[in-house]
Design a protein around this nucleic acid. Structure first.
Lengths: 229, 229
DNA sequence: AACAAAATTTAGGCAACCCGAAATCCACGC
DNA sequence: GCGTGGATTTCGGGTTGCCTAAATTTTGTT
């Protein structure tokens, strides 16, 4: 509901570029952020015009983060994930609520706040959804696995990351018993838009599974911390 | 630096009305918030027009909070002071920095956040400056003492509240050894704009002392937790 | 009571962000 | 090689908050 800032756009560009490397189109960003393409075009112009520029924007051929823009995105991602960790672990917010709360907070906290909070919490390395938290140096964290690997029925899998942008879905997933770290065997699925990352048991590969997963994917929970293979 | 909202105006009106009961003039609010009178006039109009109205505004004769406006102010004050407590006690922010940080955070946190934070911290009753924290019911906290009592030289006093709006001054005061709870004997002062509340030792009365205090007031630190009388 | 000074409000502008509609551009099919 | 549909950008508007300058009311004199 609050109006979005350059930071939000940078974060979105970073996430989208992770999914699908290369330039991000105006419409892709617009639909991800749920804004009109016109609004995105304008903002991209602004982001290309500030000093230092945050994006390399070429009209009609999309945008891509500059090094500076990437640092900004990673700074916001670090804030977001650290805050989620705090909200969940310390204040006890349920998993479906931490994203929305962190989304508002990440714009209000200072670097000093984040530095102190991280130290106080013992420098956590991942958020409660399983996403890695960028370090203070703002280096891109290891991308654990590539998106869009195939997830065949009957494969065994473990949830590595859960997308935190859709509370409704998080609730449905929780109802299915899907939590980070949880292992599964895949029974059936509809390969569509990626939403969360799953590690396949035998090969150790990872995949992203789509938003319609709750409806399309059938899994069989296995023991959580079972031995390997 | 960020633009102010109705919440900020409500908080300011509440604080000013505490100091000096009655309608608050446009210029008093403008100088307190460091804005042009024109900006204040506009916002007062908006606050009188929303449903339910937050202020009772009569052109050219100032404004006063409605019950609804007062509740808003107290909600923000509760957030602010609770956050200051957290920043200081948990994250270890120095006293001079907590105000600025809380000022930004108080707009980003939800009621659920505040409810959980307060519970987690054990429902603290005052902020690190000594201001009382309004309860979840948002009843006006006891106003401890009336402003503008006279503070005669040679009186013994104890700092009850320290104004948190001026970091520079907080630093100077800290240098003088002035902290909440600290007792003093007053040696000399210039009675001017109130800044912090001091409890006089023999009478138990309280006064507010002005921003130029560091330059004008001379006090003699006494034992902090000495016996009564 | 009449005025000038002080306080306040109105008017005109600016900066961020957003939207819908109209104008453009590009690329693919024929 | 030429349409044409889909993506993108441009244009005209709208909102919130703030500012300066000008207009207006109130206040405090004398």
């Amino acid at each position: 509901m609050p109006t979005l800032s350059m930071q939000d756009y940078a974060k979105a560009l970073y996430v989208l570029e992770q999914r699908q490397p290369g330039r991000i189109s105006t419409s892709a960003l617009a639909s991800y952020l749920d804004l009109s393409p016109a609004a995105v075009t304008e903002m991209l112009h602004r982001m290309a015009k500030v000093q230092p520029p945050l994006v390399d924007y070429r009209p009609r051929r999309g945008a891509r983060l500059t090094t500076e823009g990437q640092r900004l995105a990673l700074r916001m991602l670090r804030r977001h994930r650290l805050l989620e960790r705090f909200l969940h672990d310390v204040l006890g917010f349920p998993l479906e609520q931490v994203h929305t709360e962190a989304e508002r907070l990440e714009h209000a906290v200072s670097d000093a706040f984040i530095q102190r909070l991280a130290a106080w919490m013992g420098e956590p390395k991942s958020d409660p959804h399983g996403h890695p938290i960028p370090g203070p140096d703002l280096q891109p964290p290891d991308a654990p696995g590539r998106p869009f690997r195939s997830l065949a029925p009957d494969a065994r899998a473990q949830v590595v990351q859960v997308c935190d942008r859709d509370p409704e879905q998080l609730r449905r997933l929780a109802a299915l018993g899907l939590r980070p770290g949880q292992r599964f065997r895949v029974l059936e699925r509809d390969p569509y838009e990626p939403v969360f990352r799953i590690r396949l048991e035998p090969q150790g590969t990872e995949v992203l599974v789509g938003p319609r997963l709750a409806a399309a994917l059938r899994v069989e929970p296995l023991a959580t911390e079972a031995s390997s293979s």
